[in-house]
Design a protein around this nucleic acid. Structure first.
Lengths: 331, 331
DNA sequence: CTGTTAGCGCTTTCAT
DNA sequence: ATGAAAGCGCTAACAG
């Protein structure tokens, strides 16, 4: 079932079938109609691999993430796939598991499948691994991580905006002792969030109390442990912001364990807005990082690069937004 | 950068390079070594699309699911991809959004990419759409949905086992008034669960009180609404089992809203064991449907079909297991 | 406007 | 054990 049979049936050459398939303007409408008829009758569709072989374009994008099982990612994947499928591209996914060896393997797979571009969102990205992509001239979009120039496009997340909003929200609720459960200091985005938080606090003329700045690991248990430490403080906070929702969920558990209630005794704000955030008891006030926006931006960046809109922007930025739910209340 | 350059560099024919690549036994070790050297020096790897074109095998599997954003699926996807990548296969994913038109589109995409097989797990699967797959002789594995014979392989989920365990657990905790929040009746697997629950109750010599059997939609809000109805009963249940975790989470919220506590006032059991289930307050006792097991079984079924182990089983079954956490307590 | 033909990169007879 | 050459299904010159 190939282009030949269609050609035979429509009584034209394979070239004409190909032209019709590709909507070439120089096929007489009448001829094109015959071809289309034959295609329909035979229920024919072109072999993408043959197409790739000759055109050099696979119409496949790669998407490398840390782990689809991490609740941050499904929305990103979904958004990216939707955008891709909508434009006739497929996507293949790679999970690195925060492991450089797996990352290298993912890149290799992408190269073997001759992807037209790859979007990468992993917490730490080794520039050396990206080099292969650059050398083979594969359009690459780095999400959140990486500096401009390291890849063909970089999509930056404006953490500060949402965090500023969160601090302002808490301040408006008369909180003055606001703690922050930070993420792992070796994670650039975690550092950025911490700095944005401190800046937010100090922009209100308040001094950040170092005792209220505790370190954690962006995981549930870590968040719980950090909260427990905070609770032991003689002069404990009236509100807590966490560097991500997972920590916030852990903190929530610790608060309940201690016999206190959210938001009655302590207000709590998360970060990311993973899908579980509105399922907590009470639903978590948090800062949303729009994964669909991230995904669409990445897709379009890649597409722009691919179609060589030389003028296409190489730097993008998406913003973050406070989502007020029920875990915050006036003191 | 093709097989030709490798051939030139190793001073052999492309045929020999190809043989070496495919570990053909009839290449003299010495020759093979030369070839491998050239490959390494050139950092060459074969073009999968060319390979597909000649061999007819793409080394791609399709995976069609309802929606990666539904917390049930990320683990399944992850398991399937891990198994695939481990064997040098890629996977492309399709989300149907519970929509037959999208399902048709997914199947079309899979066909166009010449997948070697497809695994399908969507709540309702129209046999008519599967027909195309069958006709084109694409190995197909149906997970949970579908009857044997409709596809090349069917993987059945033994809902009853875990549900029986759950009922037994509750009974052992001296619960006698146990309610069930059922899923949408048009969903076969939801019906199966409901029936298994009723059978479980009656196997303990207890009669199922119809008032304790409420219908819902497998969503949070629905679960909450169902629970609210249950709470209004003059003789209310001491324990509740839900047809899925999402409903259970909704129920949990409703119980708190009503000023009651879990498990102190009411015991609660979910179903599925989505990753959020152990993050609820208190962590939810639930029945686990192992997605990794499901994924691996599907992958191996497909692989078996592909390599034509004609004798390979066409029917598989995986079981479900009670996971006791903290939402259940003796009455 | 349409057909002929030469590859794209690989595997696989068929010779040798 | 190795090479020559045909061909997988398609596109893109080039002719006409």
């Amino acid at each position: 079932m190939s282009i030949k049979e269609v050609a035979r049936r429509a009584k034209v050459s394979t070239a004409t079938v190909s032209r019709t398939l590709n909507n070439s303007p120089d096929v007489r409408p009448h001829t094109a109609e015959k071809v289309r008829q034959a295609i329909a009758e035979l229920n024919y569709y072109p072999n993408t691999h043959a197409r790739t072989l000759v055109s050099g374009r696979s119409r496949i994008f790669g998407l490398i993430i840390s782990d689809i099982t991490n609740p941050f990612f499904p929305d990103l994947v979904r958004g990216f796939e939707d955008a891709a499928v909508h434009r006739g591209q497929e996507v293949i996914i790679g999970n690195t598991d925060y492991n450089p060896r797996r990352m290298a393997h993912c890149i290799r797979r992408m190269l073997e499948r001759k992807v037209d571009g790859v979007a990468i969102m992993t917490s730490e990205t080794d520039p050396a691994l990206l080099e292969e992509l650059v050398r083979r001239k594969v359009p690459t979009a780095l999400l959140d991580t990486g500096k401009a120039g390291e890849a063909s496009a970089v999509i930056h997340i404006d953490y500060a905006h949402g965090i500023q909003q969160a601090v302002k929200h808490l301040m408006a609720l008369n909180h003055r002792r606001i703690a922050f459960i930070a993420g792992p200091p070796e994670l650039p985005s975690a550092r950025t969030r911490r700095e944005a938080f401190v800046a937010g606090i100090e922009s209100h003329g308040t001094k950040m109390d170092p005792a209220l700045l505790v370190e954690s690991d962006h995981k549930i248990e870590g968040g719980a442990a950090a909260m427990t430490r905070l609770l032991k403080l003689s002069h404990r906070p009236t509100a807590v912001m966490a560097s991500n929702d997972l920590s916030a969920i852990g903190a929530l558990g610790a608060i309940y364990e201690a016999g206190l209630r959210v938001p009655d005794d302590i207000s709590l704000v998360g970060f990311d807005d993973i899908s579980f955030a509105h399922l907590t008891q009470p639903p978590l006030t948090t800062v949303r990082v729009s994964r669909s926006q991230l995904a669409e931006t990445a897709f379009h960046a890649l597409e722009g690069l691919l179609h060589g809109h030389g003028e296409s922007r190489r730097d993008y930025s998406i913003t973050t937004q406070l989502v007020v739910r029920s875990s915050t209340r006036a003191v």
